[in-house]
């Protein structure tokens, strides 16, 4: 996989050099670096890529958090385990991100499968792009992608990411608590009913339990007390396997290591240090 990723980097570097693209994630000459916007599928024109790369670079620098776009034909060529694992592999291999924590967010798109993943990394990256925030970010570009309007989608992604980073820097990351108002509680009558109903049910069961104790003359339908000691001879015991049934349930954004749930507020960070939001476009 590393070889493929390295080849991808070299290929991109060559393309970028040839085309005179200078916007790179970092200027470290000792290592192959990935541009802010990398498109190996030719979905956007060179000028569009330049424009997007410039914008992504500005945003990354302004908020000290890398914002990346990677477009590939088939993510399985890089990592067959899944698009999330592919995103993590690219992010790590090219040492993407900003600062010591390597804060950043990356949108990876796999055109053959029409799948995307938003991967956030680093303390600030994960804090700025909460579970709800990543969903919010996805909603900004999915309409465009469904119309195959890639450039507009990327623009919307970058602009929305910038807005979210701005909010996060001000201490108010886009999250469900910030975004949605708490629903109004039940009215006084409903509260009264909610108080009376369970208490009545509890009282009913307890008093009927007492009532049952008043009637002790009950017929017996079994005779365990009269089984002869040692009088049980179990002579048949066969367990016949018939078949196996299998049910597969897809878990959407299931938290791996931390608490919290989708849209429940906060960010679900995996043990890898990444948080994700993926889906189809």
């Amino acid at each position: 996989m590393k070889k493929r990723l390295f080849c991808l980097g070299l290929l991109l570097l060559l393309i970028c050099s040839f085309l005179g693209v200078t916007a790179y994630a970092a200027a470290d000459e000792e290592q192959v670096r990935l541009a802010y916007v990398t498109d190996v599928t030719g979905s956007i024109s060179e000028s569009q890529r330049d424009s997007l790369s410039q914008l992504a670079g500005q945003i990354s620098e302004q908020y000290s958090c890398g914002v990346y776009i990677v477009v590939v034909d088939n993510y399985e060529e890089y990592n067959s385990e899944g698009i999330e694992e592919c995103a993590e592999g690219i992010y790590r291999f090219y040492d993407l991100g900003w600062g010591d924590q390597r804060d950043g967010v990356m949108l990876i798109m796999s055109m053959n499968q029409r799948e995307y993943d938003i991967a956030a990394y680093g303390d600030f990256g994960n804090a700025a792009f909460t579970d709800y925030g990543k969903d919010y970010l996805a909603q900004s570009f999915l309409d465009d992608f469904r119309r195959n309007d890639w450039y507009s989608g990327f623009q919307d992604y970058l602009n929305t990411a910038a807005s979210m980073l701005s909010s996060a820097r001000q201490g108010e990351p886009v999250d469900i608590v910030w975004e949605e108002r708490e629903p109004e509680g039940p009215g006084p009558v409903a509260k009264l009913i909610m108080a009376l109903l369970p208490s009545s049910v509890a009282a009913f069961f307890i008093t009927n339990g007492d009532k049952r104790k008043m009637k002790t003359a009950v017929s017996k339908r079994t005779a365990e007390d009269y089984v002869v000691p040692g009088g049980i001879n179990l002579y048949l015991h066969e367990d016949r396997f018939l078949h196996r049934s299998r049910h597969v349930e897809v878990i959407q954004n299931r938290p791996r290591d931390s608490g919290g749930s989708h849209h429940g507020g906060g960010t679900t960070v995996h043990s890898s240090g990444f948080s994700h939001h993926s889906g189809k476009f």
Binding site: N233, R240, L242, V250, I251, R254
Partner: peptide, 21 residues
């Protein structure tokens, strides 16, 4: 991201003799 539930189905046969007094 898949939760796989596999269910094995069996037909069990049990038999015995119980003496009552």
């Amino acid at each position: 991201n898949q939760r796989i539930t596999e269910t094995d189905h069996f037909d069990l046969l049990r038999g015995g003799r119980v003496s009552f007094s």
